[in-house]
Computed example of a mutant assay.
Amino acid sequence: MAGNCSWETHPGGRDKVCPDAREAPEPHSRGFLSFEQISELPPPAVVNYIFLLLCVCGLVGNGLVLWFFGFSIKRTPFSVYFLHLAAADAGYLCSKAVFSVLNAGAFRGPFADYVRAACRLLGLCTFVAGVSLLPAISSERCAAVLVPGRRWRRRPRRLSAVVCALLWSLSLLVTALHNYSCAVRGRRAPGTACGRADALLGLLLFPVSCPLMALPCLGLVVHEGCRARRRQRPAELSRVVLAVVSVFLVSSIYLGIDWFLFWAFRIPAPFPEYVTDLCICINSSAKPAVYFLAGRDRSQRLWEPLRAVFQRALRDGAEPGGPGGGAPRALTTEMRSPPGSAS
């Protein structure tokens, strides 16, 4: 598990000091993205219950997404991406929920340490997988709206599944290398194998992944702006992609500052570590709400089947004849009109 390091100030500067690796880890250690512990102070007890409540709500929402996108809604290239993204978020929230239970109960001992280590690996793997899926989703959506419909329909049918499998394999490889560098070769201060592994992991998550997901979103923003000028209805799918990427970029600000300050200048972040964990949990729990808000039809009754809501969230106005296009929508409106209402 994570080391419990502290900072010592001396005339020459500040150094990070870690206890002997033989000492038992503290039960409040974060241990998801790094083996290092920047602050030795445990979070308030109420924070663990907030984490647990947030994780339970997120697990329920992502479970509904897994059920409807996996078994109830017709498969599309983007439903496959969102299905894997929900699986990654559910895995992270599950590991964080177990961490919160162990921290709230202050469980110690070999078994508790083993559970924490397993949850750390699961949380890191699923978090890396979720971050890796976002550039693929935004890039493919940008290609879908910019490439003509005929060429887009020629794409391999199983391209989304292949990309998701490759990204999961990459996440497993990154997690295995990180765990080997830190758990097998030792966990010491930055500059060792564990410190370099943490730095490379941060480079993969922020300077590499964030531009890859943000640049295609800029293309989507320009495209949706042009559709609005032509008084065309924006595609729900584009709004979903933009919202999902925006939620991650906003929620990862604290984690990026945490990583940048420590690995670039070796100074602690100006906020507690549990703030970054809270932002990550919000990011993993907010995606089902994004699908629901994007697919909800305000003109219909307050309660409508979730299957219809999620199906509407995947509506792609960029593809001619796609589900929920202009003609089917007009036909649906006409069928719902009461008899004798036409002039």
Rank of each mutant, 00 (worst) to 15 (best):
F68V: 13
W67C: 02
L293V: 15
G31Q: 06
A118Y: 03
W168E: 04
G31S: 06
S171K: 01
F248G: 02
R301C: 08
P288D: 06
R154K: 10
A264E: 11
P42N: 09
L242E: 06
A161P: 08
H84M: 04
G13P: 13
P288R: 06
A176N: 09
A235M: 00
G13W: 05
A45S: 14
V131G: 02
A327M: 06
V47K: 10
K16D: 09
Q300P: 09
P135W: 00
I280K: 05
L53C: 13
L237E: 01
S299K: 08
L93F: 05
P216D: 02
L218V: 13
L331D: 08
H178I: 02
F292Y: 14
G91F: 01
R108T: 15
A197M: 10
A136P: 04
D113N: 14
F35G: 15
S238P: 10
T9S: 12
T9A: 12
P77N: 01
L255C: 06
G91A: 00
A183P: 07
A117D: 15
W263M: 12
G70F: 02
H10T: 13
C18P: 08
Y291H: 09
R185M: 14
R315T: 06
D20L: 14
V174Y: 07
A165P: 01
K96N: 10
Y92C: 01
V275H: 10
Y274K: 00
L93V: 04
L102P: 03
A228E: 13
C217E: 03
L33K: 06
S100F: 02
F78D: 00
N62G: 08
L170F: 13
V240S: 07
V184H: 02
L203D: 15
Y291D: 04
A136Y: 00
V244N: 05
P135C: 00
L54M: 11
R108K: 08
V80K: 04
R153F: 05
V60C: 08
Y114P: 03
Q311S: 12
A106T: 15
R227Q: 14
A197I: 04
G340Y: 08
H223M: 11
Q311K: 04
G105V: 13
F78G: 00
F265Q: 15
L64Y: 11
S29I: 13
T333H: 09
L261S: 07
A269C: 10
S238E: 04
